[in-house]
Simulated assay, not measured.
Amino acid sequence: MRRGLTVRVLGSALIAGAWPLLAHAASVQELVSQGNGHGAPPCQSCHGADGAGQAAAGFPRLAGLDAAYVARQLADYAAGTRANAVMQPIARALSEDERQAIGTYYSRLPVPAIPPSSQPSANDLGATLATRGRWSQRVPACEQCHGPGGVGVGAHFPPLAGQPASYIEAQLKAWQQGARRNDPLQLMQHLSRALSAEDIAAVAKWFAAQPLPAGSGGR
């Protein structure tokens, strides 16, 4: 085969091989920015074009979260083990492949820089619960599962650092009230019931104030 023809043939093969990936990437971008046309609205309408979320509205950051964690939360919304009047119908309108694609998409987004905020003191109630726990009530430190400063650990313990305080508080109350039941070994259901409203507000505020360096996603 002549060299010029070989290059054209190989080039066509590479384009053909790349096309499904390019089409998939385009479809994921459309899914996030436009919705799927089957009942799921654009993800970015609540979570922002950069996946940073909206602190004022209590919408969490998705950028940089573990892909498996995001996909599993969507599946749990669809199954009803995580109750939310907004997210449940959206999750049910997504296919399993779409949930996986959304998880992968957000895991690869850079983690947005978080504006500096005043840090609670080391003896603050929220800091105590987050870093030392309350062993008299068998409440371990939040950092034992969610990592130092709440940076997150794997697919089961998401980052808490820099998430809106209103979002963290709402999730603790959801576990406490049984509206959310998708935690490993029901750890959060048990722990949340040992916390008072004051405890929940304090620890949510502490994690919201923790710095999370900007960088690449994909943890």
Score class of each variant (00 low, 15 high):
Arg72Ser: 07
Leu74Arg: 02
Ala75Met: 11
Asp76Val: 00
Asp76Tyr: 00
Tyr77Met: 12
Ala78His: 14
Ala78Phe: 12
Thr81Gln: 07
Thr81Arg: 07
Asn84Thr: 11
Ala85Cys: 07
Ala85Leu: 13
Ala85Met: 10
Val86Asn: 13
Met87Phe: 11
Ile90Pro: 01
Arg92Asp: 12
Arg92Cys: 11
Ala93Leu: 13
Ala93Arg: 04
Ser95Cys: 07
Ser95Pro: 08
Ser95Lys: 06
Glu96Val: 15
Glu98Asp: 03
Arg99Glu: 09
Arg99Phe: 00
Arg99Met: 15
Gln100Arg: 08
Gln100Lys: 05
Thr104Arg: 10
Thr104Val: 10
Tyr105Cys: 06
Tyr105Gly: 04
Ser107Ile: 06
Leu109Arg: 08
Leu109Lys: 08
Leu109Trp: 02
Pro110Asn: 05
Val111Arg: 02
Val111Thr: 10
Pro112Leu: 05
Ala113Met: 01
Pro116Ala: 05
Pro116Trp: 04
Ser117Thr: 08
Ser118Val: 15
Ser118Leu: 15
Pro120Ile: 07
Pro120Met: 08
Pro120Tyr: 08
Ser121Cys: 01
Ala122Val: 11
Asn123Leu: 13
Gly126Val: 05
Ala127Gln: 05
Thr128Tyr: 13
Leu129Lys: 05
Leu129Trp: 06
Leu129Ala: 09
Ala130Trp: 05
Thr131Tyr: 08
Thr131Lys: 08
Arg132Ala: 03
Arg132Ser: 02
Gly133Glu: 06
Arg134His: 14
Trp135His: 14
Ser136Lys: 03
Ser136Ile: 13
Arg138Met: 01
Arg138Ser: 01
Pro140Gln: 01
Pro140Tyr: 00
Ala141Cys: 10
Ala141Ser: 11
Cys142Thr: 07
Glu143Thr: 07
Glu143Met: 06
Cys145Thr: 05
His146Leu: 08
His146Tyr: 06
Gly147Cys: 03
Gly150Ile: 11
Gly152Tyr: 05
Gly154Val: 03
Gly154Asp: 06
Gly154Phe: 02
Ala155Leu: 03
Phe157His: 09
Phe157Met: 09
Pro158Cys: 05
Leu160Gly: 09
Ala161Leu: 06
Gly162Gln: 00
Gln163Arg: 01
Tyr167Arg: 13
Ile168Phe: 04
Glu169Ser: 08
Ala170Trp: 12
Ala170Ser: 15
Ala170Glu: 13
Gln171Pro: 01
Gln171Asp: 03
Lys173Thr: 01
Ala174Asn: 14
Trp175Ile: 07
